[in-house]
């Protein structure tokens, strides 16, 4: 599968409180969460992000709370994936569990600038920066995570396993 869109660039340690502030956690409606996505770090993100665009960030993206509202808000905002130097572990889990692709690509992150046009090929494990004319490989997704994605997420995976047992 190929993903393509513009890069929105942020720094290190982007936490779940700025991805979706707790004042909006009294709902789990994806459309409503999307309206406030990234609000406390970039108030206009929700209005300017285009379908397929990428959030590109530094180390430890998604640190803090376990709120699945964070990947839900990003997915519902129209963004297709998050590319970062590294991810906080609960965010990493949550993203796979609910089907938001995320990639660790430190070299690419360092050179991507806001507004660059990116194309990600998930099967080949490659990221092309069309604006800069450069191509990168990202850290391969562990086999188990690929199984999760193939099964259609954690719940389907568990349900199938239980049935088979």
């Amino acid at each position: 599968m190929e993903l393509s869109g513009k890069a929105w660039k942020y720094g290190d340690d982007v936490d779940t409180d700025v991805i979706i502030p707790a004042r909006y956690l009294n709902t789990s409606d994806p459309a409503e969460l999307a309206r406030h996505c990234m609000e406390d770090i970039d108030a206009s993100f929700a209005s300017k992000v285009g379908t397929g665009d990428f959030i590109v960030a530094g180390k430890n993206f998604g640190c803090g709370s376990s709120r699945e509202h964070a990947p839900i808000a990003i997915k519902a905002s129209g963004a297709s994936a998050v590319i970062a130097r590294s991810f906080a572990r609960i965010f990493y889990r949550n993203a796979f569990n609910m089907g938001l692709p995320i990639f660790e690509a430190p070299d690419a992150v360092d050179e991507i600038e806001a507004g660059d046009r990116l194309v990600v090929d998930m099967e080949r494990g490659s990221l092309r920066n069309e604006t800069k004319g450069k191509e990168y490989r990202f850290t391969p997704i562990p086999p188990f995570m690929r199984e999760l994605v193939a099964a259609g997420g954690l719940l389907n995976y568990i349900a199938k396993r239980k049935k088979g047992a």
């Binding site: 376990s66 609960i90 889990r93 569990n97 997420g153 719940l155 568990i158 396993r161 239980k162």
Partner: peptide
């Protein structure tokens, strides 16, 4: 499904925070 679930390590237990989907799966299986 709360990041501070790691608190119980004080008791020499393993405990860790996960997301809501993980909680749903654990409630089931």
């Amino acid at each position: 499904a709360d990041s501070h679930t790691c608190t119980y390590g004080a008791l020499c237990a393993f405990s860790t925070g996960v997301g809501s989907t993980d909680l749903a799966a654990a409630m089931f299986s």
